[in-house]
Amino acid sequence: MANKLKLAVSPHIHSGRSTMGIMRDVIIALLPAAIAGSVIFGLRSLLVIGVCVASCVLLEAVFNKITKKEQTIGDLSAVVTGLLLALNLPANIPVWQCVVGSVFAIVVVKCLFGGIGYNVVNPAITARVFMLVAFGSMTIQAYPKVVDVASSATPLAVMADGGNAPELFDLFKGLHGGAIGETCAAALLVGFVYLLVRRVITWHIPVSYIGSVFVLSLLMENFDFVRALSMVLSGGLLIGAIFMATDYVTSPSTAKGKLIFGLGAGVLTFLIRYFGNYPEGVSFAILLMNILNPYIMSWTSHKVFGGGKA
């Protein structure tokens, strides 16, 4: 017995938390949005989701195999990337474009930078931006199948052209044009609550991000609450603020840093939406903040108890 005893430095127990567990929680939190999207935009949504998830996982597996790296698909992060990417695409997007987007997300943004933990920017966001620039189909949004929606453009596009804000309750239910997972605010908020309860994320980034967009829109819209609230509920803001801006690897880990990150993304989103050429600015805003993340982190390090600055 004596020679079989394990020797190791403390601690000798572990909390049981794992990367896989965290990713599983994110997937669970995204399910309401995925289901809502499939109901609102029809079963083709499921095809898009399936293709993106399958390509992301397969690509990561093959990349690891070819480069003789340890297999990492078990941590489910590739599933999260695939799912997030799909939910950010319109339901009517051609399948081959889903595959190209997945290649960009997993191979270019994630694996070539060293795999999980080493990517500089969020893979799903960056792939979406890439697709937005590369494919015209990204801007031709799908429309809800379940109701007859008279307006042919997404709410943000309508409002950008000076049109009326849509019914708030319809926005909340997600009955308007947009990407599969971004329209149903109710489903996204359910996911948000789940992530908070499971302590996967904290409130800081989503609240500061969404809050700053709301306040700035309110000022811009002469305190028209309905229009400002429409700004919050439309486009990719909720899914972006809750699921993409909170990506651990590419966002700050300190509370102060998170607030700065959320605020920065909010201001950028507002500027792009109101003064830029795109009606939607969430992806660009998060991508830019991803790049600023290392700087935010070094500005906001914790104070060390009884010592200097960390």
Partner: peptide, 14 residues
């Protein structure tokens, strides 16, 4: 104890 994997910068340690 679980296997060591890559840091995902979650900030839990801090």
């Amino acid at each position: 104890l679980p296997k060591t994997t890559a840091c995902i910068s979650c900030g839990s340690c801090t």
